[in-house]
């Protein structure tokens, strides 16, 4: 366990060096938040009937999306791992006395957390002080906040497990860019990154609910605004855990198979 913590710490310190990048990132995300909110406001301003999500809920959703971007982006590139796989240097990784899966998992997790710490906090503070209608709303009560944090963290683990699968797939495709781009684009759409899931047409919602992606974005964010009631949120978290076990199990098994191939081929 200590080994993973060390990997984690190293990554963290490494990431902290890029302050300017973090500031730039925060500003960029704020800007995108504004643009998206303006677009939603324009749509809502003439809407007839009752949309499935209130404007205030959508605004909260947009800000959460910008704040936790590094938690929810499916595609968070780690070139080191790619190079390891494609160049055959994976052999070095196998020499270390710790499992490859947990090692990479820790690495990818640390990367996202670092980036989130650097970028989220400034935006997080700013959005609560914005003038209306842009201001971010608080969650309705304290238990909701706890539920949100728990579901967000579970969602984070789910997304790392999904991205692990992407990395593992590189053992077979050997070319990281093409296939990964496709998976991440589709995944982000079904996570509710482009349009919040409740605003999608009904037929698409059914499809989306069957996939794991929405548990990383749509679910925690709607827990925050209270759009998903608390009891339902608890059930949802159980489903998150199920997905997590499934994805990790599958990833573990496929990585084992991939590594066996590498060993047989001799690199």
């Amino acid at each position: 366990m200590r080994a993973y913590v060390s990997v984690w710490k190293l990554r963290f310190i490494n990431g902290m060096q890029y302050r300017a990048a973090a500031i730039a990132g925060a500003l960029t995300q704020l800007f995108f938040g504004f643009v998206f909110i303006m677009i939603y406001m324009a749509f809502y301003s003439h809407s007839s009937g009752q949309p499935p999500m209130s404007l205030k809920e959508v605004i909260t959703y947009v800000w959460l999306q910008q704040i936790f971007l590094s938690f929810i982006m499916l595609w968070f590139r780690d070139n080191e791992i790619f190079d390891l796989i494609t160049s055959g240097n994976i052999a070095y990784e196998l020499c270390r006395p710790i499992g490859v899966y947990p090692l990479w998992f820790a690495k990818l997790l640390a990367q996202r957390v670092t980036s989130a710490v650097l970028r989220s906090i400034p935006i997080l503070i700013v959005v609560f002080f914005l003038p209306e209608p842009y201001r971010m709303a608080w969650p309705p009560d304290l238990p909701t906040l706890f539920l949100f944090v728990a579901s967000l963290l579970l969602g984070l683990l789910v997304i790392v497990a999904v991205s692990m699968l992407i990395y593992i797939s590189v053992f077979w495709t050997l070319s990281p860019t093409g296939s990964t781009l496709m998976i991440s684009v589709a995944g982000e759409f079904f996570a509710g990154m482009i349009v919040p899931v409740p605003l999608m047409p009904d037929w698409l919602q059914k499809f989306t609910y069957a996939l794991p992606f929405r548990w990383t974005v749509d679910f925690p964010f709607r827990v925050y605004s209270g759009h998903i009631p608390q009891t339902e949120a608890l059930w949802g978290m159980i489903i998150q855990i199920c997905w997590l076990c499934l994805l990790i199990g599958f990833g573990y098994a496929s990585l084992r198979r991939a590594l066996r191939q590498v060993v047989i081929q001799g690199g």
């Binding site: 070319s175 684009v185 482009i194 349009v195």
Partner: peptide
């Protein structure tokens, strides 16, 4: 890789347009 990437590039704005 070229074809996959081209297809991926097709998909990116496609999801935005779908939105």
């Amino acid at each position: 890789s070229f074809w996959l990437l081209s297809f991926g590039q097709f998909l990116v704005p496609f999801t935005v347009f779908a939105g």
